[in-house]
Design a protein around this nucleic acid. Structure first.
Lengths: 155, 155
DNA sequence: ACTTGACCTGTGTCTTAGACACAGGCTTAA
DNA sequence: TTAAGCCTGTGTCTAAGACACAGGTCAAGT
């Protein structure tokens, strides 16, 4: 299997396969006549795992840790569990951030239904944002300080 | 005002101020004796706008467009409105993605309550993920193809 | 055998929005 | 004047690939 072939088979892009190869997550053998990279069956299984883990938003570095654990012959499952839980916490955080941002944007649009497109008065770029920030900042500070009560230190 | 002073006044970091300076969003004058960058009152207003727009997740490039429009003397408001709406759409998309990811992670954890930490059987790295992906992929495909019914082409 | 065109390959560079490192300059108290 | 301690500008680094590009390869046609 060559790069594009493998990529198609696993429903990803050649660039992704090349990237994982470049950073050493998967190791091909070089065809001696063309110098092309050739991937075997075991690499395909490995790539499948990598892509699945990426679906769960594991970082490539986390995946590298898991694989090296597995390559040593020991179960990677405890590590995987730990990472999944960490991922879930991160996702929750991200979820809150996105939620807050959505509120901000919606409220901005709502506020602006009434206001016209005034010309800039010299010291402000666009009153739509200028007014938004002054009224909104305080509110947002309150919300965000309520939200992030905890700190996840993963080191 | 020098870098750190301005950063503190606007509740941001010196690195951020340096960055905006580096890419030309804000333009200081060089103190002729030390060569230090010095920022005036108007720059402070400008920086306030930039930080506000960043709060709304405007990209730096979008902000650059807005500012250059404003610098030409015309209202940036229509542009701002357009970007806000685009941002909101992007945020909705991101929201759905995060939601889906959260479901995936939670269901992974739930599924694993029963299963043990088996040793790898050679062709799989961790059955926790291996089993998850095979059962989960189809479900997720259905969900995501339901979700992203539209394509936002902003170019 | 040769050539054409299409596809494929490896490598290098680019992306975001700053964070971090670092050698040196400035300032101020002694 | 000197020492300590900020401060400065510049250069490099980040994640996860996407993109560009010069050249190689392959199958079909001549």
């Amino acid at each position: 299997m060559r790069v594009t072939e493998l990529a198609n088979a696993m429903d990803t892009t050649p660039d992704t396969v090349r990237y994982y190869t470049r950073i050493g997550l998967i190791v091909p053998i070089k065809s001696p006549n063309n110098g092309y990279k050739t991937y075997g069956e075991k690499v395909q299984q490995r790539l499948k795992f990598i892509l699945s883990a990426r679906q769960l938003d594991f970082s490539v570095e986390e995946i590298r840790d898991i694989l090296s654990e597995s390559d040593k012959g020991s179960t990677a499952c405890p590590l995987v569990r730990k990472i999944v839980e960490h991922r879930l916490a991160e996702t929750e955080k991200q979820f809150q951030v996105t939620l807050l941002l959505r509120e901000k944007l919606k409220s901005a649009i709502d506020d602006w239904q009434s206001k016209p497109n005034k010309a800039p008065t010299g010291h402000m770029v666009c009153h739509l944002i200028d007014s938004f920030t002054t009224t909104q900042w305080a509110k947002e500070r309150r919300l965000s300080s309520d939200a992030n009560g905890e700190n996840y230190e993963s080191k």
